[in-house]
Design a protein around this nucleic acid. Structure first.
Length: 421
RNA sequence: GCGGGCGUCGCCAAGUGGUUAAGGCAGCGGCUUGUGGCGCCGCUAUUCGGGGGUUCGAAUCCCCUCGCUCGCCCCA
């Protein structure tokens, strides 16, 4: 195949799909605005170090999934694999963390060099929300509710919210040790990659889908056994609030965020309709991140939603539905000019107008008018022009020639009144 | 990076060694040089992702390669 085509894992969003995107994006913007979030936009390209430091050297994302290159100034640059690191960088760089709590949302394309599969592309889109400078457990609950309500509002059903706690950094350290010691006893059962994980990120083993490991994990120590009274109380409080908000959830003590700066709340919203990649929204609290990137200690909590997965769940619920108000049938040199002027005037008056520029026969043009699903056809030809008129036709009426009305070219007010009816 | 499935027109496809590569949708033209949704007629793949091989003969068999897809790892 010598034809030029998209890079693997990168797809075109064609006109038949863009309207769905616009609708969801508009709904998201509206939902976030009502939720008191303000949008932040950061560059797609950042210095590589931002992600290696912000996401973690030992993660797969940084270790093998980044789109990185050296630019002409000999800097290592990376297309963002996620949104949070850039947002944090921006808050620090622009001094926004000195201006009180920040409630933000962002959206746009992210890039990860992975093998594409259902619900996963190399260029994919996320929308995310984050709170900075808010440490109460109510913030965690509010943020979860914003995600939950958004997904509900746009009409997605069958979602499940799973939550877990990772405790404080101290708690995690203790748990990590416990877990490592425990897995060491079964080191023979672990393959190379799991042993690697055991060294770098033992908590992530809990997430394994390997059936044998899953069985093993059933008997592994759970985090509950390691966390402090305060952490436990915080987690119970979160559950209480979610109950009060009538947001159903399940506890999943294998749900972990592998990175060191995560603490307390971790959650995912999943669906069984997504194939292997079941998570449509994932997030948690990461009080250590801002500091790790050179800012002041700042409590932070956030989540991201995968847009492509959202669309899989939506199916045909948000269909393209924008048909023209008017299809302008026209023929003959002078009539064509008149039609162009009329199209412009109607568009100015907020009508969606499709102008037939084909110059083909009236029969053809009407065929296309019908296909376009326009409500009205306006007809301008030599005959009409000679009388200083045009015709309006209701395309939804089945009779062919009987449903025309003639109108003078200068009766624009009258025309718009008819079209609106 | 590693497995499984697949690759025939813009889309959906039939064809599984004999040569004129069905059919449907969409598109274009006509029946209808000025009137739509139905109908009828015609046109639209020298070619079966690409390359090489086997054969008198290949879309059909073999090898390589590219791409898509599903899964593993991991994530949204």
């Amino acid at each position: 195949m010598t034809n030029l085509q998209t890079l693997r894992g990168m797809i075109d969003i064609l006109p038949s799909q863009t309207e769905r995107w616009q609708r969801i994006e508009a709904l998201a913007r509206d939902h976030f605005t009502r939720s008191g979030l303000r949008e932040i936009r950061t560059p797609l390209l950042e210095v590589t170090e931002l992600f290696s430091r912000g996401i973690g050297e030992t993660t797969d994302v940084v270790g093998k999934e980044m789109y990185s290159f050296i630019d002409r100034g000999n800097r290592s640059c990376t297309l963002r694999p996620e949104g949070t690191a850039s947002v944090v960088r921006s808050l620090i760089q622009n001094g926004l963390l000195n201006q009180g709590p920040q409630r933000l949302w962002y959206g746009g394309p992210m890039f990860r060099y992975e093998r594409p599969q259902a619900g996963r592309q190399r260029q994919f889109h996320q929308i995310g929300a984050e709170f900075f400078g808010l440490s109460s457990v109510r913030s965690d609950a509010e943020l979860i509710s914003i995600a939950w309500d958004f997904l509900k509002d746009i009409g997605i059903d069958g979602l499940e919210l799973e939550i877990n706690t990772l405790g404080t950094f101290e708690d995690r350290k203790i748990y990590r040790k416990k877990l490592t010691d425990w897995f060491e006893k079964y080191i023979d059962l672990l393959d190379d990659s799991l042993r690697n994980q055991l060294r770098n990120n033992p908590l992530r083993i809990l997430d394994s889908k390997n059936p044998k490991i899953k069985e093993l994990i059933r008997d592994a120590p759970i985090i509950d056994s390691s966390i402090s009274i305060n952490s436990k109380e915080r987690f119970v409080k979160l559950q209480d609030i979610l109950n009060s908000l009538k947001i159903p959830f399940t506890l999943n003590n294998c749900l972990v965020r592998g990175l060191d700066y995560y603490c307390h709340t971790a959650f995912e919203i999943t669906s069984n309709q997504l194939g292997a990649q079941a998570t449509v929204c994932g997030g948690g609290r990461y009080d250590g991140l801002v500091e790790q990137l050179g800012g002041p200690p700042t409590p932070s909590v956030g989540w991201a939603i995968g847009m492509e997965r959202l669309f899989i769940l939506l199916g045909e619920k948000i269909a393209n539905s924008s048909y023209p108000d008017v299809y302008l049938v026209n023929r003959g040199e002078k009539a064509e000019m008149e039609a162009l002027c009329l199209a412009r005037a109607l568009r100015e008056a907020n009508f969606k107008v499709e102008l037939d520029n084909s110059g083909s026969t009236f029969a053809k043009q009407f065929k296309r008018a019908n296909r376009s699903c326009a409500k009205w056809a306006i007809v301008i030809g030599e005959e009409e022009l000679n009388k200083g008129e045009f015709k309006i036709k209701d395309l939804s009426k089945s009779s062919m020639n009987l449903n025309e009305i003639s109108m003078k070219l200068d009766e624009f007010e009258n025309l718009t009144r008819v079209l609106k009816a």
